[in-house]
């Protein structure tokens, strides 16, 4: 299953990549793969912006705008003017991903 075309904010800077392969190890959607001995983004539409690759890339080769991806969380964020949040931690009755 794929989500919307060209919507993911994933950005991969080939020049900074050292082919350590940590991104391939942590990505649950096979967004990255080795092609011609180099790590490449195979299909950006598969990216769910979880941010695991960007957090674990030591060389700053990956950036992604990660965050809560649920509609109610984003609406909450729009209403409160803050970041999308489903408030799992603070409220016991709040819904959570």
């Amino acid at each position: 299953m794929k989500y919307l075309k060209n919507s993911a904010s994933l950005n991969f800077i080939t020049e900074k990549c050292t082919n350590c392969l940590i991104c391939i190890d942590v990505c649950p959607h096979e967004v990255f793969a080795v092609k011609n001995k180099k790590v490449r983004v195979v299909d950006k539409d598969l990216c769910m912006e979880c941010g695991a690759c960007a957090l674990n890339c030591k060389y700053g080769a990956i950036s992604v705008n990660s965050g809560v991806g649920c509609a109610s969380g984003i609406i909450n964020g729009m209403l409160s003017g803050g970041a999308p949040s489903c408030d799992c931690g603070s409220s016991s009755s709040a819904e959570c991903c």
Partner: peptide
């Protein structure tokens, strides 16, 4: 149905924002 994006394993925040911008 749009609410279900929060339970899936493949949707992303940018996409949901894009959908909401048009749908809301």
């Amino acid at each position: 149905a749009l609410q279900f994006t929060g339970s899936t394993t493949f949707t992303n925040m940018s996409g949901v924002k894009k959908e909401l911008k048009i749908a809301l």
